[in-house]
Structures are given as structure tokens and as C-alpha cells.
């Protein structure tokens, strides 16, 4: 178990949290180790966003969106489901554990679930430890390859 908190990037569809309390919690009370990126729809999330979060030092990435048939834009979440699921498998193929990328569909009756999911995700990440498979955008060594 790691003592430093796991860094999590949360991509949240702005339509997926139905209860104002949940949204208020995400907007105001999110723990410091969770970095929130609100998107208009999960369909907006380019795999580049996920990679950027990973290379920015996230130990895990969570995507929360609306149930398949409940997309505000009809099918943005379906596009996300195809691409992002494949992308996380692809990252797994090159050694970045698939469990570090988690997707959650939220529904009307899921009040408070976002908190539970994040807590569960954090526990998963703690067992995995800090992510090291891919390089972060850290400073490069001075003077290139030869010095």
C-alpha cells in the first residue's frame, strides 16, 4: 500500500450527475488528489485526453458518463464506449494496466454513487501502486543523449 494518495483524473460528462448534491460535491468537495475535467459529453473525450492525463502523472483515469440510451446528444457516449474501451485495452497491450482506466455509466437513481466509485477506484489504484509504465512529461535530461 502506498502512502502518497493516488492521483486520479476524472473526466465527467456534465450531464451525467443528475442530483445537484452530487454535482456540488464534485465541483466543490472533490479530494485534492482528484483532478476534474468536465466535458460536454463523453463523446468529446479524445483518447489524447486520456493519454495526456496519464503523461501528466495520473495514476488512474476515470470517465463518468450517461447510460447508453440516455446521452444528452443521443449517441456521444456510444462513440466514447467504442473508442475509449479499445484505447484502454491498447494501453494495456503496451503495459499500462487496463484497470487504471475506469468507466462509469451513471443513471438517475445513482445518487451518491460517484463518491463510492471514486473511493473504490482509489482502492484499486492503491493495490496497483503508482503508475510507472508510461513516461510523464517530466523535464528531459540536460543536453540530449550524449552528455
Amino acid at each position: 500500500m502506498s502512502t502518497t494518495p493516488m492521483k486520479i483524473a476524472l473526466f465527467q460528462c456534465r450531464w451525467c450527475l443528475y442530483s445537484p448534491e452530487d454535482q456540488a460535491w464534485v465541483d466543490n468537495d472533490l479530494p485534492k488528489n482528484i483532478h476534474l475535467v468536465k466535458v460536454p459529453c463523453t463523446g468529446r473525450i479524445d483518447p489524447l485526453f486520456i493519454l495526456n492525463a496519464v503523461q501528466g502523472g495520473a495514476d488512474g483515469v476515470m470517465v463518468s458518463g450517461c447510460l447508453p440510451e440516455k446521452c444528452h446528444f443521443k449517441e456521444g457516449n456510444l462513440a466514447a464506449r467504442r473508442q475509449l474501451a479499445e484505447f484502454s485495452q491498447f494501453l494495456d497491450y503496451i503495459g499500462y494496466a487496463q484497470d487504471r482506466v475506469r468507466f462509469v455509466w451513471l443513471d438517475l437513481q445513482d445518487r451518491g454513487r460517484i463518491q463510492q466509485e471514486l473511493a473504490a477506484f482509489e482502492r484499486t489504484l492503491e493495490t496497483l501502486g503508482q503508475a510507472q509504465a508510461l513516461a510523464t512529461r517530466a523535464p528531459i535530461a540536460m543536453g540530449g543523449a550524449h552528455d
Partner: peptide, 13 residues
């Protein structure tokens, strides 16, 4: 040439 002019080099932070 990269011994003298590295392909990427940090000039300042």
C-alpha cells in the same frame, strides 16, 4: 552532429 547540437535541449527553466 547531435554530440554538439542535441536533438532536444533545455535552454532554460
Amino acid at each position: 552532429k547531435d554530440f554538439f547540437l542535441p536533438q532536444s535541449e533545455t535552454l532554460l527553466t
